[in-house]
């Protein structure tokens, strides 16, 4: 068995993670669009059935529940949390075919669509609703097939898909590092969502590198994670100074 036992790789010095500053996030949606484009996420004429739609980076509206004019809303972008709980993430634990596994070297929870048998145990297990199922064959308008990127394969009907922290970008960066004779474990890369965020709300990097922005921000007093009580140990942190936002982090989304 390779890579599934957490303790075997306790030495890894890389743990990619993300910090999303909700005080900066304006909920514009650029991250989600960039993600769809980067990863060939397919779309249909009607995208309003949120139980059937494919979405790797979903925006949730949080509300403080107060009456007019004390009402406030905030948007919360939700990628895959890449849970770092010991031994297994909730999804990797239940996958019968090793289609979804955690790369213990980087901490990224991968999903290999061609191995996936579509049982959707992982979707049930994921407390963050981070996974979507391909209920239909992906179909693009003929002229739009030209804009599919070769870096990520389009998925097929009957498999699950989810955010990969753009690990194809990591692979490219690691290849480049090897070619340049550098340490592939020291590479820094940026997922598509963090790259386009106009307010700089999304920070990405190695949580184990104490000098990285992401590691510093994860220790910020404003930092929190979603559903921490489940001990899934998400590697996606949120920052907010608003109590009413922080309070919602432990409720279901």
């Amino acid at each position: 068995m390779s890579g599934s036992a957490h303790s075997e790789h306790a030495e890894s010095k890389v743990r990619y993670g993300m910090v999303i500053d909700l005080d900066k996030c304006t909920g514009c949606g650029a991250c989600s669009v960039a993600c769809q484009q980067e990863n060939n996420v397919s779309f249909r004429p009607d995208e309003s059935d949120k139980l059937r739609t494919l979405s790797w980076m979903t925006l949730y509206r949080l509300e403080n529940g107060a009456g007019y004019p004390d009402y406030r809303a905030a948007m919360l972008p939700r990628p895959c949390m890449h849970c770092d709980s010991p031994h297994h993430s909730p999804c990797t634990f239940v996958c019968p075919v090793n289609a979804t596994i955690r790369d213990e070297h980087t901490g990224i929870v991968d999903h290999v669509a061609v191995r996936c048998i579509g049982c959707r145990y992982c979707m049930v297990a994921c407390p963050y609703h981070a996974r979507s199922f391909n209920w239909w064959d992906p179909k693009w308008p003929k002229s739009m097939e030209a804009m599919l990127t070769p870096e990520v394969s389009p998925r097929m009907r009957g498999v699950v898909e989810k955010c990969t922290f753009c690990h194809h970008r990591l692979n490219l960066a690691r290849d480049r590092a090897r070619l340049n004779g550098e340490d592939p474990d020291s590479v820094v890369y940026t997922p598509a969502c963090a790259e386009v965020c106009p307010t700089g709300a999304i920070t990405f990097g190695n949580l184990k590198d104490p000098n990285s922005d992401v590691a510093k921000l994860a220790k910020d007093p404003r930092a929190f994670r979603l559903l921490e009580k489940l001990h899934t140990e998400p590697k996606v942190y949120y920052l907010s100074s608003a109590q009413w936002i922080r309070r919602q982090s432990d409720n279901g989304l």
């Binding site: 650029a30 002229s143 804009m147 386009v196 307010t199």
Partner: peptide, 18 residues
């Protein structure tokens, strides 16, 4: 500085629009 809005990010869908 590297940011775009959702419309700018999806501008290829106008170029390749049916």
């Amino acid at each position: 500085g590297g940011g775009v809005c959702p419309m700018g990010a999806s501008s290829l869908q106008y170029l390749y629009a049916p």
